[in-house]
Amino acid sequence: MACVNVIAADSDAEAHRLFTSLQQLFLGIVSGNHKPLQPPLDDMNEVWSNSEKLSAQQMLTYSFVGSPKTLQSSLSSFLQEAGVNEIMATSPIFAHDARLNSYRLFAETIQAINRSVKGSKI
């Protein structure tokens, strides 16, 4: 089993915007300035330094962000490489309705992956 971060939205751009909330959370870990989950930002480069960005990105390696099409590609590759047959996802998204939509899109993506790989069921 693998546990990953999944931030899904109807478009890649919206998913990446929603992802900034999780990035801010990890910025707080890196900087020692912990805060509750914050609203998304238009540009993370305004709030973190290059070293903070690199540290946070390393911790967020297993984060899958994007539209259903993007997620299907990246998650399929991950599942094959990792050899897992079970996946647990977390979607730390600030707005509740966007979080519910992310889980719905993630579930649909996993169903599409299962349909495309005979005998596979995640």
Rank of each mutant, 00 (worst) to 15 (best):
S21L: 05
Q23A: 11
Q23T: 05
Q24Y: 06
Q24M: 13
Q24D: 04
L25V: 03
G28D: 07
G28S: 04
I29M: 13
V30G: 03
S31Q: 01
S31F: 02
G32H: 04
G32D: 07
N33G: 03
N33V: 10
N33P: 00
N33H: 13
N33W: 03
N33R: 12
H34I: 13
H34M: 09
K35Q: 04
K35C: 00
P36W: 05
P36S: 09
P36I: 03
L37I: 10
Q38Y: 03
Q38D: 07
Q38G: 10
P39L: 03
P39R: 06
P39A: 07
P39Y: 01
P40D: 12
L41W: 03
L41F: 01
L41I: 05
D42V: 05
D42N: 11
D42A: 15
D42K: 11
D43P: 09
D43I: 02
D43T: 07
D43S: 07
D43G: 06
D43H: 04
D43C: 03
M44P: 09
N45S: 15
N45I: 02
N45M: 07
E46G: 06
E46P: 00
E46A: 15
E46W: 01
V47L: 11
V47F: 14
W48Q: 14
W48I: 11
W48N: 05
W48D: 06
S49Y: 10
N50C: 04
N50K: 14
S51K: 13
S51F: 12
S51Q: 14
E52S: 11
E52M: 14
K53P: 00
K53T: 11
K53G: 04
K53M: 13
L54S: 15
L54R: 15
L54D: 13
S55W: 04
Q57R: 13
Q57H: 11
Q57W: 05
Q58W: 07
Q58H: 12
Q58N: 08
M59P: 02
M59Y: 10
M59T: 06
L60E: 12
L60A: 15
L60M: 15
T61F: 09
T61S: 15
T61L: 09
T61N: 13
Y62I: 06
S63T: 14
S63A: 15
F64P: 00
V65P: 02
G66E: 06
G66Q: 08
G66S: 08
S67R: 10
P68Y: 15
K69Y: 02
K69H: 12
K69R: 13
K69V: 15
T70G: 03
T70Y: 02
T70C: 01
L71M: 03
Q72M: 12
Q72V: 10
Q72I: 01
S73Y: 08
S73L: 12
S74P: 02
S74Y: 02
S74H: 12
L75P: 10
S76D: 01
S76K: 01
S77T: 12
S77Q: 13
F78Y: 15
F78L: 05
L79E: 06
L79D: 07
Q80H: 02
Q80M: 12
Q80D: 04
E81F: 05
E81N: 13
E81H: 08
A82P: 02
A82N: 14
G83T: 06
G83E: 04
G83P: 02
V84K: 06
V84D: 09
V84P: 00
V84M: 08
V84H: 08
V84G: 02
N85A: 08
E86P: 00
I87F: 00
I87Q: 01
M88V: 11
M88I: 10
M88E: 07
M88Y: 10
